[in-house]
Amino acid sequence: MCTRGSPFAAMRFALLAAIHCLAQARPTPGRCHLQGRLVGEVHGLLERMGGRFPPECLGDVVAIAAPTAAFRSNGTKRNAGVERAVYHTLTSIDFLFGNDTVPVSWDGRTVEDFQNIVYRQIDESKCVSSRRATADFKDRRRLLGLYFDRLASVLQEKEFSACAWEVVRRELLQTLKFILNNTLGHLFWARRRRNFH
């Protein structure tokens, strides 16, 4: 018989506590989703890390077609294609910022927080990428691939200059703003809707 103070009761309590912690830490398959709040934080950190677009970089602005069609709903309540497109966007952002060549004028702590939040969102939502692809995801992926290839080309052509990064940051802000303002109704994430300007 296990009494309250017995070693068996203590072990049982510790085991139950450990199981409870594991259940809390691991998302269940039915709860796999992107977190709108974190996407909003990514947008806010990206905006704050460099401040206003520098006037001296206006000559470096290039026309890059935003991949808005990649985030358009196909009319279903839960659009897996949109969700995968947003996830693909986050992984591409992570890849762009993975080379540690961002301008020294940007706030280093904010850049680090940005990278951590992007990675956290990717890690916590990786089950999104393993879901069965929708028929239209191939087109969505192609649009996103062209967009991110163009951003990477801007950085390489301008030798990762501060202005090249500002152009990339400006583009990503617009894309994230579009995602936040136009996809919340199609994804299982934060229900409170807020327009990003």
Results as ranks from 00 to 15, higher is better:
residue 122 I to M: 02
residue 174 Q to F: 03
residue 174 Q to D: 02
residue 6 S to R: 00
residue 29 P to F: 08
residue 163 C to V: 07
residue 65 A to N: 00
residue 120 R to V: 09
residue 58 L to C: 14
residue 1 M to V: 11
residue 91 T to N: 13
residue 74 N to Y: 06
residue 49 M to N: 00
residue 165 W to M: 04
residue 186 H to D: 11
residue 51 G to E: 06
residue 188 F to L: 10
residue 34 L to K: 04
residue 117 I to H: 02
residue 122 I to G: 01
residue 124 E to W: 05
residue 100 D to P: 09
residue 175 T to P: 03
residue 157 E to H: 09
residue 144 L to T: 07
residue 43 H to I: 08
residue 171 E to K: 10
residue 154 V to H: 12
residue 156 Q to W: 04
residue 93 I to F: 00
residue 179 I to C: 09
residue 122 I to E: 05
residue 163 C to G: 03
residue 32 C to A: 12
residue 126 K to T: 12
residue 66 A to H: 01
residue 69 A to F: 00
residue 76 T to R: 15
residue 64 I to G: 00
residue 9 A to P: 03
residue 114 F to Y: 07
residue 166 E to V: 04
residue 76 T to C: 13
residue 162 A to P: 13
residue 37 R to S: 06
residue 71 F to M: 00
residue 138 K to Y: 13
residue 33 H to M: 14
residue 24 Q to K: 06
residue 42 V to A: 06
residue 188 F to Y: 11
residue 99 N to E: 04
residue 140 R to K: 09
residue 85 A to G: 09
residue 19 I to V: 15
residue 119 Y to V: 02
residue 13 F to S: 03
residue 130 S to P: 01
residue 118 V to F: 06
residue 45 L to I: 05
residue 165 W to I: 03
residue 154 V to N: 11
residue 137 F to P: 01
residue 98 G to L: 06
residue 33 H to E: 14
residue 146 L to T: 10
residue 30 G to V: 12
residue 183 T to C: 08
residue 118 V to P: 02
residue 98 G to N: 11
residue 37 R to Y: 01
residue 166 E to Y: 00
residue 139 D to G: 12
residue 45 L to R: 11
residue 134 T to M: 08
residue 155 L to D: 11
residue 108 G to P: 07
residue 151 L to A: 03
residue 144 L to E: 02
residue 187 L to M: 14
residue 84 R to P: 07
residue 89 T to I: 00
residue 170 R to N: 07
residue 102 V to S: 11
residue 103 P to K: 03
residue 145 G to L: 05
residue 97 F to S: 00
residue 62 V to A: 10
residue 125 S to V: 09
residue 151 L to Y: 04
residue 5 G to C: 11
residue 87 Y to W: 13
residue 125 S to E: 04
residue 10 A to C: 08
residue 25 A to P: 02
residue 56 E to A: 15
residue 156 Q to F: 09
residue 88 H to S: 12
residue 190 A to W: 11
residue 23 A to R: 07
residue 40 G to T: 05
residue 81 G to R: 01
residue 89 T to M: 11
residue 77 K to P: 12
residue 169 R to E: 10
residue 99 N to C: 08
residue 93 I to W: 01
residue 179 I to G: 07
residue 22 L to A: 07
residue 192 R to Y: 09
residue 86 V to A: 05
residue 4 R to F: 12
residue 115 Q to M: 08
residue 129 S to R: 10
residue 93 I to P: 04
residue 72 R to G: 10
residue 74 N to L: 00
residue 83 E to P: 03
residue 22 L to W: 01
residue 146 L to K: 10
residue 171 E to V: 03
residue 114 F to A: 06
residue 94 D to K: 15
residue 150 R to V: 08
residue 74 N to P: 03
residue 150 R to Y: 11
residue 40 G to C: 04
residue 14 A to E: 04
residue 121 Q to I: 12
residue 106 W to E: 13
residue 100 D to E: 13
residue 184 L to T: 13
residue 26 R to K: 13
residue 109 R to M: 13
residue 87 Y to I: 10
residue 180 L to E: 00
residue 129 S to T: 05
residue 118 V to E: 02
residue 28 T to S: 15
residue 31 R to H: 14
residue 84 R to Q: 14
residue 40 G to Y: 02
residue 25 A to K: 04
residue 101 T to R: 15
residue 188 F to P: 12
residue 171 E to Q: 12
